[in-house]
């Protein structure tokens, strides 16, 4: 008879995997990706393809030739996801060489310097975006007007609504009829994807709801205090990549807190920081910076926010 395998319990597994989660998020991003192709045509496709290919290439190159790892990690889906998310944060007329530079920073500095998947402190795609935003402020903030399907770097541009441009109607914001980065234009498509992730239990509600809720409340209060100066809360929610950030960037497993309590603190803080940066900061769009700042606080939050232990509730009630 063959020898029996001996190992410790549990002897069964729920069949979840890193790949399932990573590609699950990619699937959730499909509606928004299609929306970006619809509105920005060729330019969106070029940016998307360049970003994904560059991210996967850099992950493979660095892990194979600089870190000397034999194991192939590019199939786990995390580099593809970083590529999609980075592209979603770029305008559709960005030249290829700038995108490649962004991908190199995202994967190389944002992820691999820390040791690869699971080790990074900052969301790699956001690190790449912020790097480009600071390095190429002009190219990064001139958004093509939607509807120019065959245009790429020659597209006509306009200022972002948050930067003083004209504010489109709420329905246009919802469906994506506005200028902006690839992934931030159609809030509806992003929300459909988010619902998919919640249904597949890829993420929990804590981070997206706390961010969106905080922004709604905080910007709502400002608007009530002075409707002349401040934007109404609905527009605040539907612009500036807020939905993209809340559902897909801030929920990044690696860089967000572990306990639900911690996730709520993280979410509320991101919401507040976003409103503060948008209204009083130098940059019109605060979301990226808010998430990056809170990424840095994640280890601290993990240290202080423990999940409620079994039996703890009763102990407090007895006191």
């Amino acid at each position: 008879m063959n020898k029996l395998i001996v190992s410790l319990s549990p002897h069964v597994h729920g069949k979840d995997s890193v790949r399932k989660n990573m590609y699950g998020v990619c699937i959730a991003l499909l509606p928004a990706m299609l929306a970006s192709f619809w509105f920005f045509g060729l330019g969106a496709a070029v940016v998307m393809l360049t970003s994904v290919v560059a991210c996967v290439f850099f992950e493979w190159f660095i892990s194979r030739f600089i870190m000397g790892r034999q194991r192939l990690t590019i199939l786990d889906g995390s580099a593809v996801l970083t590529g999609i998310l980075l592209a979603f944060n770029l305008p559709s007329n960005l030249p290829i060489w700038i995108i490649v530079l962004g991908a190199l920073f995202a994967i190389g500095v944002g992820k691999m310097t820390f040791g690869g998947l699971g080790q990074n402190i900052f969301n790699p795609a956001l690190a790449g975006r912020v790097f480009l935003l600071i390095s190429f402020p002009v190219q990064m903030t001139s958004w093509p007007v939607p509807g120019q399907l065959t245009a790429y770097t020659d597209a006509v541009t306009a200022a972002t609504p948050l930067g003083g441009g004209e504010i489109p109607a709420a329905t246009d914001l919802l469906f994506g009829q506005m200028g902006g980065s690839l992934g931030e234009v159609s809030a509806l498509a992003l929300l459909i994807g988010c619902a998919f992730m919640l249904w597949r239990k890829i993420i929990t509600w804590h981070i997206p709801v706390s961010i969106l809720g905080t922004v709604a409340v905080a910007s709502g209060l400002l608007w009530l205090a002075n409707p002349e100066q401040y934007m109404d809360p609905l527009t605040s929610l539907l612009t500036g990549g807020l939905v993209l950030g809340a559902c897909y960037m801030a929920t990044d497993y690696v860089t967000s807190p572990m306990s639900h309590k911690g996730q709520l603190i993280y979410g509320v803080s991101i919401g507040l920081l976003t409103v503060i940066i948008r209204n009083w900061g130098a940059y019109p769009e605060g979301m990226s910076f808010a998430i990056i700042i809170m990424n840095a606080f994640t280890p601290l939050i993990n240290n202080y926010c423990k999940p409620t232990r079994f039996g703890e509730v009763r102990k407090e009630a007895a006191k």
Binding site: I5, S7, H11, H13, S17, V18, N21, D76, S78, G116, L117, G118, Q119, Y253, V254, S256, P257, M258, S259, Q263
Partner: peptide, 13 residues
Amino acid sequence: AKRAETEPCIRCA
């Protein structure tokens, strides 16, 4: 009976 290959913790919580 066999366990699958281990991957890095992705801190998914």
